[in-house]
Design a protein around this nucleic acid. Structure first.
Lengths: 340, 340
DNA sequence: TATCAACACGAAACCGTTTTCGTAACCTTT
DNA sequence: AAAGGTTACGAAAACGGTTTCGTGTTGATA
């Protein structure tokens, strides 16, 4: 087991000072040709690599980005993460991921831990509990310390920072317009039980489209489901009670599960009933029928978030730019669950 | 923007020395009661938190774990990651994730970067390219430096380190036995084009079960597909050419795609043809029919990997324990694609 | 009253870098 | 030969902690 080589080791071996070694390795003009060559040859031979931690301490920048997301086993977050990782890596940054597991406390603990020097900036999406509690003190602490923060998807107006979001309301509006164009009248909305800004926005778009078309928004056409462990019976009851000919779901799991239920009940998709979901993940592509869905362009979202963050990190303090909110346009990917 | 408080700040403010502050904060007996209380009160009031980087430099341990995986938008890796993250977090470690994107170079660059002090140990799964190149010099470098390494799932015998793997051969064997028990004779294997140790093991189990049953292993019953962007035509041809009544797929995507194809061709699942896949992800649960699949218990795998790694990290050097290979037993989850 | 331990604290080294500044030694110039 | 300018390098501070060791003050003991 060979221990890591340090500048000190090289200095001792070559009988020069540490500073000389350091300068020689960076081709400083201060150092003579012979010495420089000697040092570089030695360093190369023994594969010297500077210690990242020491560099971080000295430079006060870690080249690490902290990513805090509610869940990792989740297609959308996964794709966003991929975008973040790709862009960050390109720019020489590493990514530390913490999963809040939709819990406020974990989110707080994780951010506070990372904020103590481990990272140069944060990219986050709020946990369900944080959104419902409306407690953002941990984020305030971060920004007050001057640590750059970018929020994506699950954001909140109470937090002032850069943001990347989907045009949720608008794209939900368009989805419903699509149903309306297909002469659907009884359009249901299936959304999450817990409070998510995105669900709210999507509901707004849904309602706006209906109202615009002169169709009343009916309470019995809205089903709220728990985020996990959905009970099929609830769906069955819902579809038995109300006559529904189109369904907008705020995620793809709800959609796929509902499609299975209504098919068991004897309805034909998309003839009797149409479906549009959100996410455009694996399930949408391989479900039966395939699901028409709103692509959220997670990877691009991640890239942009990373780009915004790194720009903040690398911009000199003093030239404060105003915070931006970047809006990604969703795309409706037409598949078998709608008539196109 | 309030700058981070340091020991020096507190020392200056309270007119004591830095060392006194440091000791007082750790309740050292060396320090008098009054001073200790004064310091702690001040630290609490101004929310002092030690700088992680400084601690890392001093302690020569970062409390970071490096995770290098081929892909993150991939159910199995995602679940393993969740296990790693959970356990690590519990033990006070953070996780730095790098995605090799199945590319050798990215894997090498990422590991070398992290190895320079950023992390205390690695958990990795080899990229496709690394497995086919059989070049493990970067892993050797890591272990030679005394950095603990745990490999999971995509492992190789040429690398000596702790490992966590599935009983791939055995569970594939059992899957085929299940087909045989259902009187299936024409059992196909659908596997990956590129070389993966796991695919090979699964193929071995497949063959062993057939041979044991006195059924010849037929070349035309094996289909190899590219890891991404599978062409449906290839599947269609395969199923037209050979009479197949059961299919073992090394992942769930292949299985779900094949099920769609054979259904389009008019076959009934599971009556005419049965399917078993690997992974037990979202697709298996929500496909039509639902897919009988080998649960790989990724989360548990991740937890165990993290446990092994952290034990190595925290064990004193000197008391070298031999390397272990932990074998996770897969479970066949019976669903609609087999007759049970 | 001289001695000595206990107490409470500070100085300084250390982790591995970078960077500023100081300075010998040599070279050039007049 | 004195003055000034290069050249090539080393010492030391700094980043923010921890820890070892030294030391002045106090109180107890002989």
């Amino acid at each position: 087991m060979k221990r890591k080589l340090t500048l000190k080791d090289i200095a001792r071996e070559l009988e020069v000072s540490i500073s000389t070694v350091s300068k020689a390795l960076k081709n400083s003009e201060e150092i003579g040709r012979d010495t420089t060559e000697k040092v570089q040859a030695f360093a190369k031979l023994y594969n010297y690599r500077p210690n990242n931690i020491a560099l971080s301490l000295k430079n006060k920048r870690t080249k690490n980005i902290g990513v805090v997301i509610p869940d990792i086993v989740h297609y959308f977050f996964t794709t966003v993460f991929r975008g973040i990782e790709k862009y960050s890596n390109l720019k020489g940054y590493n990514v530390i991921v913490c999963v809040s597991d939709e819990a406020f406390d974990k989110e707080v603990i994780n951010t506070e831990l990372l904020a103590n020097g481990s990272i140069d900036g944060f990219i986050m999406s709020l946990s369900a509990e944080t959104q419902s509690k409306m407690d953002f003190h941990h984020l305030l602490e971060i920004t007050e310390q001057g640590i750059p923060l970018v929020l994506f998807d699950r954001v909140d107006d109470h937090v002032t920072c850069d943001k990347v979001i989907l045009n949720d309301k608008e794209i939900a509006y368009q989805a419903v317009k699509k149903f309306l164009g297909n002469r659907r009248k009884n359009i249901a909305l299936i959304t999450t039980e817990s409070y998510f800004n995105v669900s709210v926005k999507r509901a707004e778009g849904y309602e706006e489209a209906l109202i615009e078309a002169g169709i009343p928004v009916r309470r019995e056409l809205r089903l709220t489901l728990p985020y996990r462990d959905v009970n099929e019976n609830e769906m069955r009851q819902f579809f038995s009670a109300a006559k529904v000919d189109a369904v907008l779901c705020v995620n793809e799991i709800f959609a796929v599960q509902c499609m299975a239920v209504v098919q068991k009940m004897g309805m034909k998709i998309p003839d009797d009933i149409e479906f549009i979901g959100f996410t455009d993940g694996m399930l949408s592509k391989y479900s039966n029928p395939t699901l028409t869905t709103v692509a959220q362009h997670g990877e691009r979202m991640g890239e942009i978030a990373a780009e915004m963050l790194i720009e903040r990190i690398e911009t000199e303090i003093g030239e404060e730019k105003p915070f931006r909110t970047e809006i990604i346009e969703g795309t409706i990917v037409e598949r078998g669950s709608t008539v196109n």
